[in-house]
């Protein structure tokens, strides 16, 4: 029972991070391997805001998310759009964007290591017990989960009930046809990429309230987010959310039942199962 609750709470944060990557890869078609660095940067900003200025991290999201939006939009406009223009097919864009975002990954990680060093950081925010069904859980995890659900619901409303959201979904399905119905594909892709970055930053902010972080952990989270995205089916918002909870649960189960050092093994086991049996995503029908 405890595993179920802890896993679900963790899954809420994973969902937010993975939704960010879904938008970036599924809609903007950029395999952003520097996604985890956005997350870690958000952790550090939240830490700095909280410990220096005493800003509540949940409120801090109001600053962090727009900042991440602008930063990611600039990255897309300056670095990635030329690659999209140059690419002749999707495969080439994938190779190019993978290599380019590797560059960004190391660049940002290097800069953060220079600024903050390799030490682990954490801060005390709402570190009080909160009782669910008689068992105490850390209040900050519960708050992070609730905030994550709120942000995801906002995203869902945006994607399924606004014109701009429909445009994002359209380019995720087929950029060529989206153009035919007067959608500015290049601009919408840039916007999806930026929005994805903002979501990941929200995830990072929430994560920092209960997780001990350091400058070089970004890749691990990118990895988890990628696996969630693939499990859910690329571009599938609902699939990604479900996959995030599955990952959160199985990681928590492995960490508490077998060994905390084997969480990545649990992630990989899931990944292999998905690749072997449902490479098109857990909710999607038909061949990949």
């Amino acid at each position: 029972m405890q595993i179920l609750v802890t896993g679900t709470l963790l899954g809420g944060t994973y969902a937010l991070i993975a939704l960010g990557l879904t938008l970036q890869y599924g809609a903007a078609r950029i395999m952003n391997l520097a996604n985890g660095e956005t997350l870690v940067a958000a952790c550090f900003v939240a830490f700095w805001l909280f410990s220096r200025l005493g800003v509540n991290p949940i409120l801090g999201m109001v600053i962090i998310a727009p900042a991440a939006l602008v930063l990611n939009w600039l990255i897309y406009a300056w670095l990635l759009r030329p690659l999209v223009r140059r690419a002749k097919n999707r495969g080439m864009l994938e190779v190019d964007s993978i290599l380019a975002t590797f560059g960004l990954l190391f660049l940002f990680q290097g800069l953060m290591l220079l600024t903050f060093g390799g030490a682990y950081f954490n801060y005390k925010f709402l570190a009080e017990p909160f009782s669910i069904l008689g068992t105490p859980y850390a209040l900050n995890r519960v708050v992070a989960f609730v905030a994550g659900v709120l942000v995801s619901s906002l995203l869902y409303l945006f994607l399924y009930h606004t014109r701009q959201g429909a445009a994002v979904r359209a380019i995720a399905v087929d950029p060529a046809s989206a153009q035919l119905v007067a959608i500015d594909v290049s601009r919408t892709a840039g916007f999806s990429f930026a929005l994805g970055g903002a979501l990941t930053a929200c995830g990072g902010t929430l994560l920092s309230t209960f997780y001990t972080f350091n400058a070089s952990m970004g890749v691990l989270f990118t990895m988890k987010a990628l696996i969630i995205v693939i499990m859910g089916g690329v571009g599938d918002i609902r699939g990604a959310t479900l996959a995030a909870f599955i990952l959160g649960l199985s990681e928590t189960a492995v960490a508490s039942l077998i060994d905390p050092g084997l969480t990545l093994a649990a992630t990989y086991a899931l990944f292999i199962l998905v690749l072997l049996f449902r490479p098109q995503g857990i909710l999607r029908r038909g061949a990949a």
Partner: peptide
């Protein structure tokens, strides 16, 4: 499958094997 799955799989592979060996 397509090339992306391969990249992602190999990205975390070293860390995975390291974890298993350490464990």
């Amino acid at each position: 499958l397509s090339g992306v799955y391969f990249v992602i799989f190999t990205l975390g592979l070293t860390e995975l094997i390291r974890q298993i060996v350490s464990w």
